[in-house]
């Protein structure tokens, strides 16, 4: 068995309402430290995780979104956003805190199929 696998992290939940977005980032960083092939996929409300300009002082919670910009320091550079989900939320690529690759649903589904491990948050 190969010790280098394709890990995809599927993010479908909005930030702050639940902890999952933050926890996903934690596992992403650890997985990168294990030298695995890491991709992040943003679907549905998960797209909101990437919105720039978050101001979390009023809810007394740490703003974790700058971490997305630090991912490239860990060689995590595959960030995919589902086009239909992005458009359904009135967002475009300029709204995101980090550069992403926008994929159609069909392209996203194909990419999921190619993974060894898919973790959902």
């Amino acid at each position: 068995m190969s010790d280098n696998k394709k890990f995809m992290f599927v993010n479908r939940k909005a930030p702050y309402g639940t902890i999952y977005a933050l926890e996903s980032l934690e596992v992403v960083l650890i997985t990168a430290a294990f030298d695995q092939d890491v991709s992040l996929a943003f679907l549905d409300d998960g797209v909101y995780q990437l919105k720039k300009g978050m101001q979390t002082k009023g809810i007394e919670t740490k703003n974790f979104s700058p971490t997305y910009r630090a991912l490239e320091d860990y060689d995590v550079e595959k960030l995919y956003v589902e086009k239909e989900a992005m458009e359904a939320r009135g967002l475009n690529e300029d709204d995101f805190i980090v550069g992403v690759t926008v994929l159609s649903r069909a392209e996203m589904g194909k990419l999921m199929d190619e993974q060894d491990v898919v973790l959902s948050f």
Binding site: R12, D44, E82, E84, R105, M108, M112, D113
Partner: peptide, 10 residues
Amino acid sequence: TLESCLNTMA
């Protein structure tokens, strides 16, 4: 969720 799955899956 099911709708998203069916729409996206290969």
